[in-house]
Simulated scan of single mutants.
Amino acid sequence: MVASAAVVVAASLVVERSGPVIGALVATLPISAGPAFAFLALDHSPEFLARSTLASLAVNAGTAPFILLYASLAQRFGLLVSLGAALLVWSGLAAALSVLAPGIGTAAALNALSYGGAYLLSHPYRRAARPVRAPARWWDLPARAATVMGLAATVVLAGRWLGPQAAGIAALLPVVLTSLVLVLHPRIGGPATAAVLANSIPGMVGFTTALAILHLTVVPLGSAAALLLALAICIGWNAGLLAMTLRSARRTRAGRSSSAR
């Protein structure tokens, strides 16, 4: 629990100081789901983890509508309405998808449709904010740490008491994105916070891919090797997105310099 909290708090500090694009890439690393799956691997067999990750993959399709709805509502409404509505929709979709319990092919297709549509529809919100520069308040870090520690405990207990499907759903709670909204929305406003979440959609594609690979490889490779492979996919994907972002920024600056001359 303490290790998970330390990772998430450190990542959230980077998000607040690096702007919406780079901050979103940090936020979409598996900084809450990763430790949750590691705890499940310590307690259970690879077969249990495979069933959990399949449930997680299905529920993961609901995170794109969560991001899109919050980004849209945050342009006009306050924190309670914007985040409350987004969490309500996520909860409804998670419940429906857990009942349907789709197989790996259907779950992958649902994620492709969900994130592809959300990426297209979120375009107006991705460039609508200034970089994040927010002063800290004394209770921010303890609140974030407590939230993540609570998630870690919930996932472990769900795995022991309720089985792999419940553990997989608990591991995919949007804790990091929700905590960022709770911290940033009151301090920098809805549109700026929406830009962070809207820019997280490309990074979530890498996380989704890693989740599918983890499900497919955990039994043949073993839990440790499969988890490391999934982590490498997440880091490599986001590193590629970062390189593309920096290259695009350099081209933009070069074009402006040429125009000025």
Rank of each mutant, 00 (worst) to 15 (best):
P65K: 04
F66C: 01
I67K: 01
L68K: 04
L69R: 06
Y70F: 15
A71P: 03
L73H: 06
L73K: 02
L73N: 06
A74D: 03
A74Y: 02
Q75F: 05
R76V: 09
R76H: 11
R76F: 07
L80I: 12
L80V: 14
L80T: 15
V81D: 06
V81W: 09
V81N: 05
V81K: 14
S82I: 05
G84W: 01
G84P: 06
G84A: 09
A85P: 10
A85I: 11
A85D: 09
L87T: 05
L87S: 07
L87Y: 01
V89G: 05
L93E: 09
A94W: 03
A95H: 12
A95M: 12
A95I: 12
A95T: 12
A96K: 04
A96S: 12
L97G: 01
L97Q: 02
V99P: 10
V99H: 15
L100E: 12
L100S: 14
A101F: 00
A101I: 04
A101L: 04
P102V: 09
G103Y: 01
G103E: 03
G105I: 08
T106Y: 02
A107Q: 01
A107K: 01
A107S: 14
A109M: 11
A109C: 08
L110I: 08
N111Y: 00
A112R: 04
L113H: 04
S114G: 08
S114A: 14
Y115C: 03
Y115Q: 07
G117W: 00
A118R: 00
L120E: 07
L120Q: 12
L121K: 02
L121Q: 06
L121V: 07
H123I: 13
H123L: 15
P124H: 11
Y125L: 03
R126G: 05
R126L: 08
R127T: 13
A129S: 13
A129Q: 04
A129E: 04
A134R: 02
A134K: 04
P135Q: 03
P135N: 01
A136G: 15
R137Q: 13
D140G: 05
D140C: 04
D140N: 11
